[in-house]
């Protein structure tokens, strides 16, 4: 009976030897196994063999992974992030998430919060708008500042427009689109550019800038005069277009005289004839 008991015990212990080796036993089980080993030679042998294999496994060497791995990992991470960003907008899950978050009771908190903000805005607004005199001085100051900015832009435009670089001159003309009401100096400078600039592109952009101020009769007159001066077919065509757009009947004469020019491009000729037809 006792021998059978011991055999049973040995089977049990054998099953636990591996667990002993990889530290998967509780302290009580552990000491029980150890107690048994002291008395049982057979199990001792078994245990020694297991332990030998276990320890030999510990000797197995794993080479160092190469440094490239890290580089490759970060490359992969970057690519992944980029692709996620690209796919983000169209992600169905995201859309679902948004709908969900909208439908969830969370919206009530958001609504309460926005109502609070509106109320707060109203309170602040009613408090600050009371001193009306102060507000008007603010307005004055703002008007003054805006005027100064406009002034500065005009000055910049005027100083840039004489720059030898065509790019700078283009920039100068570009500034005029930000100037709401141009003074005489600006208009004058623009016309000087339109009529004398050696670069066709600069002249075309200037023409475009000038058409903004077409309500000004001086500008319309200047544009009509310019018809006789332009020699580039592109500018001539553009000018003819502007005349039609402005419905400037006074330009018909100038256009007709342009037709009489000797070295007129055929395309320009057709265009001008068409423009005259449109205007009269």
């Amino acid at each position: 009976m006792k021998a059978a008991d011991n055999d049973m015990n040995c089977e049990n212990i054998k099953g636990q030897l591996t667990d002993w080796l990889n530290h998967n036993l509780t302290t009580t089980d552990r000491s029980e196994v150890e107690k048994h080993l002291i008395h049982c030679l057979h199990c001792q042998e078994e245990f020694a063999a297991s332990r030998q294999v276990w320890e030999a496994m510990g000797q197995m060497k794993v080479p160092e992974p190469s440094q490239e791995m890290r580089v490759q990992f970060h490359a992969m991470l970057d690519t992944f992030k980029a692709s996620e960003k690209a796919g983000h907008r169209f992600s169905f899950e995201n859309l679902l998430g948004k709908i969900k978050s909208f439908a969830l009771p969370q919206w009530s908190i958001q609504l309460a919060f926005s109502l609070l903000l509106v109320a707060l805005g109203w309170v602040i607004g009613s408090k600050t708008s009371r001193p009306k005199i102060e507000a008007s001085t603010y307005e004055q100051q703002i008007d003054m500042l805006a005027g100064q900015v406009q002034e500065m832009k005009s000055t910049m435009m005027l100083s840039l427009i004489e720059n030898p670089s065509a790019t700078e001159r283009l920039r100068a003309v570009g500034y005029t689109s930000e100037i709401t009401d141009a003074d005489e100096r600006v208009i004058e400078a623009l016309f000087a550019t339109l009529n004398n600039d050696p670069n066709v592109n600069v002249r075309l952009v200037t023409l475009e800038a000038l058409t903004q101020f077409a309500k000004n009769p001086a500008v319309r007159e200047g544009l009509v005069k310019s018809l006789a001066i332009q020699d580039s077919p592109m500018v001539q065509v553009a000018l003819a277009d502007v005349m039609v757009k402005m419905q400037e009947k006074g330009s018909v004469k100038a256009l007709q005289s342009l037709l009489r020019k000797e070295d007129l491009n055929d395309l320009v000729k057709n265009k001008i004839e068409q423009s005259i037809k449109d205007l009269s």
Partner: peptide, 21 residues
């Protein structure tokens, strides 16, 4: 996603060991 870099530093050796074995 950048936090994955830290996880890589912590675990790539162990994972490499697993696959190597």
């Amino acid at each position: 996603m950048d936090k994955m870099g830290l996880l890589f530093e912590r675990h790539h050796r162990a994972l490499f060991g697993f696959f190597y074995h």
